[in-house]
Amino acid sequence: MTLKQLEAFYAAATAASFALAATQLHLSQSSLSKRIGDLERHLGRVLFDRSGHRATLTQAGRELLPRAREILAAADALQAAMGQQAPLAGICRFGVGELAAMTWLPRFVARCRRDFPELRLEPHVDLGQALEERLESGELDFAVVAGWSSRSTLVSQTIAKVRYGWAGAPELLRGHARITPRTLQETVVITMPPGAGSTRIFDAWVSAHNLDVPRRLTCNNMTAIAGLVSAGVGIGFFPEGWLRPLAERGAVQLLESDPPLRSLHYSFQCRRDDIRAILPALRERVMQEVDFSAPHPLR
Rank of each mutant, 00 (worst) to 15 (best):
C92Q: 08
A11C: 05
Q288D: 08
G168Q: 07
R244H: 11
F116A: 03
A231Q: 10
Q85F: 00
A281E: 10
A101V: 03
V144L: 07
A80S: 14
A169K: 02
I71C: 05
K4E: 14
P181F: 14
A281T: 00
G90R: 12
M102N: 12
V46N: 12
R120T: 13
R134F: 11
V46P: 03
H176Q: 15
L211T: 06
T103A: 07
P239Q: 13
T218I: 15
V252S: 03
E132N: 07
D273I: 05
F116Q: 00
E63I: 03
D38H: 06
V229R: 04
A86P: 00
A22N: 08
R285K: 13
D291L: 07
V96G: 00
A11Q: 06
G37S: 14
P297E: 08
L3K: 10
G147D: 08
V286Y: 05
L99M: 01
G195K: 00
Q269C: 15
L47K: 07
R45S: 09
A68Y: 00
P297Y: 06
S198W: 00
G90E: 05
R107N: 14
W104V: 03
R163V: 09
R215M: 12
P295N: 02
D274H: 09
L154P: 13
R272I: 09
A21H: 01
S257R: 03
A167R: 09
S230M: 05
R215I: 06
P117K: 03
W242T: 14
Q84Y: 00
R107M: 13
A75H: 15
A16D: 14
G83S: 02
I225C: 08
R69N: 08
A77Y: 08
G236Q: 08
L255H: 01
G61K: 00
R35W: 10
D76F: 02
A15C: 15
T56H: 14
T56G: 12
F9T: 02
S137H: 11
N220E: 12
G138H: 04
R45P: 01
L65D: 04
R200Y: 04
D126Y: 13
L47Y: 04
